[in-house]
């Protein structure tokens, strides 16, 4: 689906991406992991054609990225953005039309999604009158409304309460089931671990690891386990031989 080949992106002062190559398979859920500043957002911006790489190329279904791919990608940026003073319905229609949808189509699909997200009746509300979580829902709708083949979600669960995070997660999985390829970008591994088929790990502008989730788990097994113990202090003895690696004690329970 997406082939990222030898991407280099240089900003004044530092290199954001250094010879990064990644393959993302059709219809899979892909996790782009790494700490803040690793180069995730730079890479996502390149896939979205917001910026261009200094060298290297990105192919979508074997074709070099171009204008025609814009309408086939949906992007939920980490820093969510909506016009504060614009009515929600109008805003959704505007973004959908920018992605190439006709106004009538956009309206029909927006109705469907508004019901699904349980936000019917917000159509004429202004963004500034909504809570942050509600704004996130609106933003999510505007990301998926044009039924993109590729969904790029940058930290999609931040800002949601657990109930709505679950709702969004299920919607994403459903879209994936219908054939959409998903890219999750996050610095919180545990939030996507269970969802991803494969991952790539970026650190300091380099790709340091990638592959199928299952393989990575198996290959990186060292037989080391973290054991959490509750109770009185343990002392190794001749009958119970072990070494304590870390002996953090927490008072009052876990």
């Amino acid at each position: 689906m997406i082939s990222i080949r030898n991407i280099v992106k240089q900003y004044s002062g530092h290199r954001a991406l250094d010879d990064v190559s990644i393959e993302i398979e059709q219809g899979k859920v892909f996790g782009l992991l790494g700490p803040n500043g690793a180069g995730k957002t730079s890479l996502i911006r390149i896939i979205n054609q917001i910026t261009a790489p200094d060298s290297g190329e990105v192919l979508m279904n074997g074709q070099k990225l171009g204008q025609e791919h814009i309408s086939r990608i949906g992007y939920l940026p980490e820093e969510r953005g909506l016009y504060k003073k614009m009515e929600i319905g109008e805003q959704i229609l505007y973004f959908a039309q920018l992605k190439g949808l006709s106004k009538a189509d956009a309206r029909a699909r927006a109705k469907y999604w508004f019901e699904k997200m349980e936000i019917t009746g917000w159509w004429n509300k202004k963004v500034e009158d909504l809570s942050k979580g509600m704004q996130q829902k609106v933003q999510f709708v505007s990301t998926v409304l044009h039924e993109p083949e590729l969904l790029i979600l940058d930290e999609p669960f931040t800002g949601f309460d657990p109930v709505n995070a679950e709702l969004i997660k299920n919607e994403i999985l459903e879209l994936n089931k219908k054939g959409a390829t998903i890219i999750f970008s996050t610095h919180r591994m545990e939030s996507v671990e269970e969802l991803c088929d494969s991952i790539a790990l970026l650190n300091l502008s380099h790709k340091i690891l990638d592959g199928k989730m299952k393989d990575i788990r198996n290959n990186n097994r060292t037989g080391t386990y973290i054991l959490k113990y509750e109770g009185a202090a343990l002392v190794p003895s001749a009958t119970q031989p072990f070494t304590i690696v870390s002996d953090n004690e927490f008072d009052g329970g876990r």
Partner: peptide, 16 residues
Amino acid sequence: IEEKVSRVVEVIISSV
């Protein structure tokens, strides 16, 4: 400035 501060710009620039 409004578009930049509210980060709308990133959404729009991915379309135009």
